[in-house]
Design a protein around this nucleic acid. Structure first.
Lengths: 189, 189
DNA sequence: GTCTATAACACGATAGAC
DNA sequence: GTCTATCGTGTTATAGAC
């Protein structure tokens, strides 16, 4: 997977540009210029602009799917599972901040892989909601609308890519712990 | 302001399309087709594609600025001010869901008005952070990193546009109340 | 207020030399 | 692996008829 160095370089450069302006506003010439080469040269390593987007998004979506499966199959309490989900998002976002921007904002520009992406996302949200519902049933979690709980948590976690790069000082653990406190315990003293 | 009916119609149609695919991926032809006319006809009512984006984003940004000024100048407790901010976001988003997508995702494509937009946004976040800091000082709010608190709340509030349209059943008040509970009191029972 | 026609340019992608 | 040159198409925007 790390053997195709040049291809990976293109994907990394593209992801950074996609984060700034979005997939549609970034041209092959932009990507090439950022790498110090000409646009035509990119096609020796990738087949199309679309392939770049696919590589960025699908690998991340699969990473979340794998992570969620590990969490849901553990024997932890439901609140602990939620904390693990927070850590999952913080970890993946820390390792690939630019890619997370595309996952959040450019998934609709996927062509062949759009259905597959939506399948993974729906499954992820279904599992997430299940954990919240079980937490309510077992009296670990307040009886608030479970969909609003998930929406609120997911909104914060999906926006991490905007915020983590500006917090070079803190490491992933500190952020995950702070977020667990805020999202689970609330801010009211 | 409501006198230029046709212009407003274009902006409304454009905002809906921008929400689906983003500013850069929507063409003047797309907007025209959605209105049942030809692209050239749009230019009798607006001067450029850029002007459409400006109208969508700046009016919303100013709405938030005005709303925040009212809140911060009130005599309520800091926790109540946070609740009022939540209501502000829910209300504005309910009234202009499509526009909120552009405000969140396409602000970087502003040309002449980019600096002005950033000014408004920075001021807004500064005021927001101030309320949290004062709430911590007055022991209303837990002593957690105030920036993470703001980030978490703002992430949820800025994502409302994704979620509110799918919740036709609930009204704005119900959503605002649920969010206040979750964001302020937490979900832990 | 909308149309057709078109200018002027940017886009993704390919061909073929080195 | 990168280049120059270019194709075919799509883009914003304008001109001028109706």
């Amino acid at each position: 997977m790390k053997l195709e160095t040049r291809k990976h370089e293109i994907i990394k450069t593209a992801a950074k540009l996609f984060k700034e302006k979005g997939y549609s506003a970034v041209t092959m010439r932009d990507i090439a210029t950022a790498m110090g080469i000409k646009a035509a040269s990119l096609y020796n390593h990738i087949s199309s602009k679309q392939e770049i987007l696919k590589e960025i998004i699908i690998s991340l979506a699969e990473e979340f799917t794998t992570g969620m499966e590990l969490i849901v199959n553990s024997n932890n309490s439901n609140l602990d599972k939620l904390s693990q989900i927070i850590t999952l998002h913080v970890t993946i976002t820390t390792n690939n901040t630019s890619g997370m921007a595309s996952l959040n904002n450019d998934w609709m520009h996927l062509e062949d892989q759009l259905d597959y992406y939506l399948e993974l996302r729906n499954k992820y949200e279904e599992t997430f909601l299940n954990i919240i519902n079980q937490g309510i049933k077992s009296s670990e979690i307040k009886k608030v609308n479970p969909e609003i709980i998930m929406f609120s948590m997911l909104s914060t976690l999906r926006s991490l890519y905007l915020w983590i790069p500006n917090k070079e000082a803190s490491n992933a653990n500190v952020i995950a712990n702070n977020l667990s406190t805020i999202l689970i315990q609330g801010i009211n003293k």
